[in-house]
């Protein structure tokens, strides 16, 4: 803050900085949790839970911190656009990876107590043939 700023402006700057700081720390914490989760959780679907959330909450909070730090229209609009695009694309990627993992027959960890999708794939043979056929790459 330059010395010429009035008292009110200075206070506003400090408040914005504190908010931005809190958002940065929380966002960083959730990204960290996501990283630990990817390493620690027992099977791939559980890991997907951890990884998508880094994209949403972690990145969202850090982007919000950027908006609060600069507090100008150009930055804020770009932050909103970035968050909107993350919210639109992250679940699609998670869904596709999870579905592909399930169809390629991953083994679940021992804490898995129910699998209702298995019946569905078993029932409708149409889907089964569709998903079981692995396309030739070479």
């Amino acid at each position: 803050m330059p010395a010429s700023c009035s008292n009110g402006q200075k206070r506003r700057g400090i408040v914005l900085e504190v908010i931005a700081g809190i958002l940065l720390i929380t966002g960083g914490f959730f990204v960290f949790v996501a990283a630990v989760g990817i390493l620690r959780l027992p099977d791939i679907l559980m890991r997907m839970h951890a990884s998508t959330k880094a994209g949403t909450l972690g990145a969202g909070l850090i982007l919000l911190a950027v908006a609060f730090t600069y507090a100008e229209i150009g930055i804020i609009s770009r932050v909103i656009a970035a968050i909107a695009f993350i919210l639109m694309t992250a679940p699609v990627a998670a869904h596709t990876i999870g579905r592909a993992a399930y169809q390629s027959g991953i083994t679940f960890w021992k804490g898995t107590i129910v699998d209702e999708l298995q019946d569905y794939y078993h029932r409708s043979s149409k889907i089964n043939t569709k998903s079981d056929k692995i396309p030739d790459i070479d």
Partner: peptide, 18 residues
């Protein structure tokens, strides 16, 4: 609905029946 389920931690949408 599927996207919101995927975005919330703890749930992940896998498949919609035909």
């Amino acid at each position: 609905l599927a996207n919101m389920i995927s975005l919330t931690p703890g749930t992940l949408s896998l498949e919609v029946s035909d």
